[in-house]
């Protein structure tokens, strides 16, 4: 309960902050916000327990309580972070479904979909993300992978080899 409550509080704080001024480094902002909320609340719980406050009886008491609280909170934040990638960047699959639905049953042909979902919509913004996120650099009009990008790409290439799958995308 405490973990879910803290997550909802942090989400409400995110909604307020993001609507006013979305951070440029969105994932760093997310991490700072949710981690900061966790540290603050955990410190508050420990302080309340040390002070033997009456209200602290309902709060985590034993190490098992804290471990369960921390893991559930981390799990919820990770799951939300995963979902947030589809909030920050439009998913092509979801966009196709919404576009087809908007026709009210008439449907869309491949040519109409390709007119709507161009390289400027689907590819160029994601290249910009790579540059902004420090995973690639734009040098003399050429995109070059950065060391962080190499590490990131190799991790997933290795993972797919482990599964025995071909290249994704």
């Amino acid at each position: 309960m405490a973990a879910a409550g803290l997550f909802l509080l942090a989400f409400a704080a995110q909604a307020v902050i993001w609507r006013r001024r979305r951070p440029r480094a969105q994932y760093t902002g997310l991490l700072g916000l949710y981690l900061g909320a966790f540290v603050l609340v955990t410190a508050g719980l420990v302080a309340a327990r040390l002070a033997c406050a009456e209200a602290a009886r309902a709060l985590p008491q034993a190490p098992l309580d804290y471990a369960t609280f921390a893991l559930l909170y981390v799990g919820l934040v990770l799951a939300f972070g995963t979902t947030y990638s589809a909030v920050q960047a439009d998913s092509p699959t979801m966009s196709v479904l919404l576009a087809v639905e908007a026709t009210g049953g008439r449907g869309l042909g491949l040519a109409e979909l390709l007119d709507r979902f161009t390289d400027r919509v689907l590819v160029v913004p994601r290249l910009d993300d790579l540059v902004l996120g420090g995973l690639a650099r734009l040098r003399d009009g050429r995109y070059v992978i950065a060391p962080r990008g190499v590490l990131f790409a190799r991790t997933f290439v290795l993972f797919r080899r482990l599964l025995g799958f071909e290249r994704g995308g």
């Binding site: 990770l78 799951a79 972070g81 995963t82 979902t83 990638s85 092509p92 699959t93 689907l122 590819v123 994601r126 290249l127 993300d129 790579l130 995973l135 690639a136 995109y143 070059v144 992978i145 990008g149 190499v150 990131f152 790409a153 190799r154 997933f156 290439v157 993972f159 797919r160 799958f165 290249r167 994704g168 995308g169």
Partner: peptide, 20 residues
């Protein structure tokens, strides 16, 4: 959704692999 599906469908990762 954050690891397997990313390896399966994410555009950023596919672009990174092309650059790699």
């Amino acid at each position: 959704f954050g690891f397997f599906n990313v390896s399966e469908t994410a555009r950023r990762l596919r672009l990174l692999v092309e650059l790699l």
